[in-house]
Amino acid sequence: MTKTLPLAFCALIATPALADVNVYSHRQPELIAPLFDAFTEQTGIRVNTAYVDKGMVERLRAEGDRSPADLVMTVDIARIEEVVAAGVTQAVDDPTLNAAIPVTYRDPAGHWFALTSRARIVYASKERVGADEVTSYEDLADPKWKGRICTRPFTSDYNVALTAAYLAHHGAEATTSWLEGIKDNLARRPEGNDRSQVKAIWAGECDISLGNTYYMGQMLADPDQQAWANSVRIAFPVFENGGTHMNISGVAMTKAAPNREEALQLLDFLVSDKAQEIYAETNHEFPVKPGVPRSELVQSWGEFTPDTLSLDEIAALRPQALKLIDQVDLDG
C-alpha cells in the first residue's frame, strides 16, 4: 500500500525503519500511487512518498547523509539536472535500466533516468485554425498569428526548455527574433498554466496555445474541463530540420539512499512493461521503453517525429535561454 507522509513528519525520519523505499516527488502522490501500489503488490516492498514541489535541492542538502530519501522523482529535464548538479545523487549502473531506457533518455553517467516523455505541442481551435495550419515552432513568430496566441509564462520550466531547444537549433540571434515575434503575437500577457490557455481558446480569447500533450487527457477526465478539451485539436509542430520538442519525467537515486537495494528494485520495476503501461494509462504520457504501446487515448492524438536533441544539451542551454526570455521581456 502506498503511504503519503506529511512533509514535517517525513523530514524527521533518520532511519529506514518506517519504509522500505522513501521517495521525494515533484509529482503529486496520487499520480504515482498506482505505480507504487503495483510494485508493493509484486514485491511486498512498501513505498512512502513525500510531495516536495519546491526546495527539493535545499532539503536534500540540509538532510545530507541523514536524508531518508532513496529516490527523487521530477518533471522537466531542468529539475532533474538541478538535483544532479547539486551533488545529492549517486550514479546507478544497472543492466536492466540501461537496456530498457534509450541513451537519449538517460544520463551518460547514470545519475538520472527518464520514466516517461511528453511533447510540447500546440493546442489549436477546431473552429478557427485549419487542420494543417500549425506546422513548425518557427511559425509561431509569423505575423499571421498576431493577437491569436496564449501561453503560460515563458519563464516556466516547460517554455524555458522549449526555448533552449530552439537555441540549440538556431543560435542566440534567431532565438531572440523568435521570442520577439511570439511576444508580438500574444493575445494577452502570459499567465496561468497550460490548461488555462485551452480554456482561453474555448472562450474565444485566442486561437492557439503551447502545452504539454498529457493535459489533454487530464482535461478530458474532468467534467468541468471537457468542453475546453473538445474545442481544440493537438498539433505536433517541429523544428526546421528537426522534430517535435520532447521533455521527460525522471528519477534519480539520492547519495544517502538508506534503502539502496530496495530502491534499485523499484527503479527496475518502473521501467518494466507493466509499470510503463500503468504510467502511460494513468498520466497520458509516452512510455520511454521501446515496444511499450501508448494508451489508446494518446494514440488517438496522432503520430509525430520526436526531436533528437540531447536532453543534456537542452539542460545546459537553459540559463542562456532564460536570459534571452528576460531580455525580450516576453512575460512583461
Results as ranks from 00 to 15, higher is better:
residue 204 G to F: 02
residue 204 G to L: 05
residue 204 G to W: 03
residue 204 G to A: 02
residue 206 C to S: 03
residue 207 D to N: 11
residue 207 D to L: 06
residue 208 I to G: 07
residue 209 S to E: 03
residue 211 G to C: 11
residue 212 N to M: 12
residue 212 N to I: 11
residue 213 T to N: 15
residue 213 T to H: 12
residue 214 Y to P: 04
residue 215 Y to P: 00
residue 215 Y to I: 14
residue 216 M to V: 02
residue 216 M to G: 00
residue 216 M to F: 02
residue 216 M to T: 00
residue 218 Q to M: 13
residue 219 M to Q: 12
residue 220 L to P: 01
residue 221 A to H: 13
residue 223 P to G: 07
residue 223 P to L: 12
residue 224 D to G: 08
residue 224 D to S: 15
residue 225 Q to L: 10
residue 226 Q to A: 06
residue 226 Q to S: 07
residue 227 A to E: 15
residue 227 A to S: 15
residue 227 A to I: 10
residue 228 W to I: 03
residue 228 W to P: 08
residue 229 A to S: 01
residue 229 A to W: 00
residue 230 N to L: 11
residue 230 N to D: 13
residue 230 N to T: 10
residue 231 S to E: 12
residue 234 I to M: 04
residue 235 A to H: 05
residue 235 A to C: 08
residue 236 F to H: 09
residue 238 V to H: 15
residue 239 F to R: 11
residue 239 F to S: 13
residue 239 F to I: 11
residue 241 N to F: 01
residue 241 N to V: 01
residue 242 G to F: 09
residue 242 G to A: 14
residue 242 G to W: 14
residue 243 G to Y: 11
residue 244 T to R: 06
residue 244 T to P: 10
residue 244 T to Q: 10
residue 244 T to M: 12
residue 244 T to H: 07
residue 245 H to V: 07
residue 245 H to P: 03
residue 246 M to Q: 09
residue 246 M to H: 00
residue 246 M to C: 02
residue 246 M to P: 00
residue 247 N to W: 00
residue 247 N to R: 03
residue 247 N to P: 08
residue 250 G to S: 15
residue 250 G to F: 00
residue 250 G to Q: 09
